[in-house]
Amino acid sequence: MKRESSIKRELLVEQLPTFVVLMILGTAAAYGQHGFLPGGDVAFPLAQVRVPIWHLVWMGFWTGYTMAIVGEAAGIFALPYQMSVLQFTAASVTPTTQLLTFINPIGALFGFIRNKQSNWDFALWVCVGGAAGALIGPFIRLTVLSDPGPFKMAVGLALATAGVHLCWAAFRRANRSQGIEGKFAAEAKASRAQGVTQPFAIPAGIPIETVAKEGAYLVIGFWGERWRLHQPTLFLIGFGVAICASALGVGGGFLLVPIFAAVYALPMYVLVAASIPFVIILSAVAIFTYTFIVPLFSGSTLYAEFAWGLFASAGGVFGAWCAAKTQRFVPQHFLKLMLGGITGIAGVLYVVDFFHPLPFRI
């Protein structure tokens, strides 16, 4: 009962006001930038397409929800969706999506912190590495990687491999009897045997604890399981992922989460503690870089379609919060299947794009 009232309070005190504020800001941005409110009848001037405002909010919601449930930001789904289905192919689509990718995971951050699915010891070095790498990435793009095609294809191959691995791990029966997955399955079975009709969920409020700090190693625990992580390696992973992601001009979550899930075998319920703060920091640095640093080299500033980005963010923040609240009901193998599917499709599109340019960007 206490849990239900806590969710209701979060919804009424935090989420609903945030949604209303972002919708008002979106409307104000439309009048400030264009002098009128675009939508389904009048085209957005920079995007040059007509899209109803409810569809932008829905697009933010579904991309925010499906990505936050696997610990990522909306960008990886939102960018190709906007460029293909919504036909927003103008150059402004990049800063507009960056705005959504920065604001949307904040809903997940608040949701997971309230669930106690946060651990700043775990997140710290990944995020420090991320901030450092994200500042270096754009300069690598301007110098060494002036033709990012082959590099992007290599990243695509790695992502496709990770995607296949995650899907295979989701279907592998042996995985379902051990670790968090085994525990989830056993407790769900026991719950059904007792005649409980509600779906089983990981009990609310179980924290991701710092069990011990042993020199350079950090031991974290969740629901009776433990993981021993080498902190300098966490820094290097954050640093490397951020350099790759910012050099390619994409978010870092879709690279970081498969590494944590496939290499470290961290459950999705735990890796969100590091991946959500990481994508927020990476997006913030990307917005700073593309607003202030890149124009110094290119001589021109690219403006976002602010109203579009803010309307999408209103749905995105709420969708990501809903993901944080419902993730513990979703079995780990479903989450792996989702993540594997998303990662694999993104990887295949990168490879295909190298040989046959796609009509949209990813």
């Binding site: 579904w62 929800y65 499906t66 036909q87 419902t326 009901f329 479903f334 989702m338």
Partner: peptide, 30 residues
């Protein structure tokens, strides 16, 4: 309470609705 048993499948339900809305948008606005 009746819809609670659908919670584990929610990500797939949301994706399915997204496909329907995308098809509607393509039909009306393209």
């Amino acid at each position: 309470k009746r819809g609670l048993h659908l919670l584990p499948y929610l990500p797939f339900i949301v994706l399915a609705i997204a496909v329907v809305v995308a098809a509607y948008h393509i039909r009306v606005y393209w």
